[in-house]
Amino acid sequence: MEKTIYVVTMLRSRNLLTRKYGKGFFNDFKTISKEKLYEILPQVPDIGKSIFSFNYQFGPAYIAWYKAFMELKLEQQEIWENIWLMNERMITIIPRGLLHLAGKSYINGFKKKAAMHAERQLKKELHPYDWQIAYREVSDNTFEIDITECGLKKLAHDFDADGLLPGICRMDYMVSYLMGNGFERTKTLGDGDDCCNCRYHREGLCAWSPEKGFEGRR
């Protein structure tokens, strides 16, 4: 899955990055990031079956892209913005109407599985790189998850890519926006807070609007 995520996103992002930086830059980026990915993959721990497995599988590609952009001398904010745009190209393979349907199905499943994840956590059944959470059901429409340990944060640290965060944390807003779910948060581990205090709504709105900045929103 990790290789598929990388390949599909690169194909979807080729025109975007070529228009922005030129063909030579894209070819260099592709060469460097592919080398980084294949260096990283054998060293990535397998966290097994987890509700966060899909998130975790994006980690190697994120780290490879981040390190390649850094090697090509881009500033950190620009790297975050490029990875946001690349993810948007990946996600919008799916038409918006189907994305909204998928969003409702995903959030319903995530709500059910989060409680089970918390139970497995209490039994010490989670991999050390899995997410550690506190789960609260607020209503039929709303639930909260406090993330106290993040697998992507640990993985980024292992590969000297701590600067990937909190940029990738912000993509939760983009994904919620595209999938038609409500999402709020005021703290993230990537910003140095004690947790990521995520609040999800089955029915609700979530603005993306990165051009407005993230003041007061993490």
Rank of each mutant, 00 (worst) to 15 (best):
L165N: 05
K23M: 09
E215S: 10
R14F: 15
E39P: 02
M1A: 06
H157S: 12
M86D: 01
N27V: 02
W65P: 03
E2A: 13
E184D: 08
D140E: 15
E184R: 06
T18D: 05
E211K: 09
N27E: 15
T92P: 07
I91W: 11
D46H: 02
G167D: 05
K111A: 15
Y129G: 02
K123V: 03
P95W: 11
V175I: 15
F183E: 05
G180K: 00
K112R: 10
I79W: 04
R218N: 08
W84Y: 13
A102Y: 13
Q132P: 01
L72T: 08
L122Q: 15
F54K: 01
M1W: 04
F159H: 01
E119F: 13
R170E: 12
W208I: 07
Q43W: 03
D193G: 04
H157K: 14
D158A: 03
I40Q: 09
M171H: 02
L98D: 05
S53Y: 00
P60S: 03
A156I: 03
V138R: 10
I93R: 12
W131N: 12
K123R: 15
L98A: 14
R202M: 09
K111S: 11
T18V: 15
T142F: 02
Y173S: 05
R96E: 14
D162A: 00
T4K: 13
P166D: 00
G48N: 01
D162Q: 01
C195Y: 10
L155K: 13
Y129F: 15
I32L: 14
I147T: 14
F54H: 02
L122W: 05
G182Y: 05
A115C: 04
D140P: 03
R89M: 13
E215P: 04
C169F: 13
A207T: 09
R136I: 14
I93S: 11
I83M: 13
H117D: 10
T188P: 08
E81Y: 10
N181W: 01
C206L: 04
I133P: 09
I107K: 12
A64K: 00
E2Q: 11
Q132D: 11
T148V: 14
R96S: 15
E75W: 06
M10D: 03
N27P: 05
L16Y: 15
